[in-house]
């Protein structure tokens, strides 16, 4: 019968579309999870670096005790944080503190001749940058997932299979003002995240 054939074809098309839509959502959700893990990796790496850096520079920077203590205390808070919210607050404090620390390190030319400090400085710089880029990538992934979950007709699949919207990573207001670290430039103004794509 041709009528049943038409019904069959329509059924196949609908199932095929549902499969593609579902797989697309899964892939985006995995990207969000993976991006989140990347952030976590960078945060841990930063925790490991801080004691070494403080140890290396404290001899040179007696006048910056406050900045150093702030970073160390924030790190301790982040590690012992009972929940995600307070951990992130502490992490944001670290970001702010390290930004200031890296900035004031420019005032100590002696540091430039210490190979160990330079190495740590590069490691910290790239960790901060990787953190910023991971966060940016995470938020992009979240936006894509959420858009897909909300838009018709993918929202039908998302609702049926329990896809939840992901939450954006929000830095503290103070954190937003800290630019991606660029030692060679000695601190530049942050660029608003415009995405001029053709």
């Amino acid at each position: 019968m041709s009528a049943s054939l038409v019904v069959l074809i329509i059924a196949i098309v609908i199932v095929g579309w549902a499969v593609l839509g579902y797989n697309g959502l899964v892939s985006l959700r995995n990207q969000v999870q993976n991006s989140w893990r990347q952030i976590d990796v960078q945060l841990r790496r930063r925790h490991d670096l801080i004691p070494n850096l403080v140890e290396a520079v404290k001899g040179y920077m007696q006048f910056e005790r406050d900045t150093l203590t702030q970073v160390v205390e924030a790190r301790a808070k982040a590690i012992s944080a009972p929940d995600q919210g307070s951990r992130m607050a502490a992490e944001n404090q670290i970001t702010g503190g390290l930004g200031r620390l890296l900035a004031v390190m420019e005032n100590y030319p002696q540091l430039k001749s210490d190979q160990n400090v330079l190495k740590l400085q590069e490691e910290l710089t790239t960790t901060e940058n990787q953190l910023a880029f991971s966060r940016q990538a995470y938020n992009d992934a979240v936006m894509q997932l959420n858009t897909r979950i909300e838009s018709f007709p993918t929202n039908l699949i998302a609702n049926n299979f329990g896809f939840k919207q992901a939450e954006y990573f929000q830095g503290a207001a103070e954190d937003q003002a800290v630019p991606k670290v660029d030692l060679s430039m000695g601190g530049r103004a942050p660029q608003p995240p415009s995405a001029p794509r053709s």
């Binding site: 330079l118 790239t126 990787q130 880029f133 990538a137 992934a141």
Partner: peptide
């Protein structure tokens, strides 16, 4: 060298940014 390390680090950074 420090410069080579820097380039390797930036490669990682950009790979993260591009996912």
């Amino acid at each position: 060298t420090p410069q080579h390390q820097m380039v390797l680090d930036v490669v990682r950074e950009m790979a993260l940014a591009a996912r």
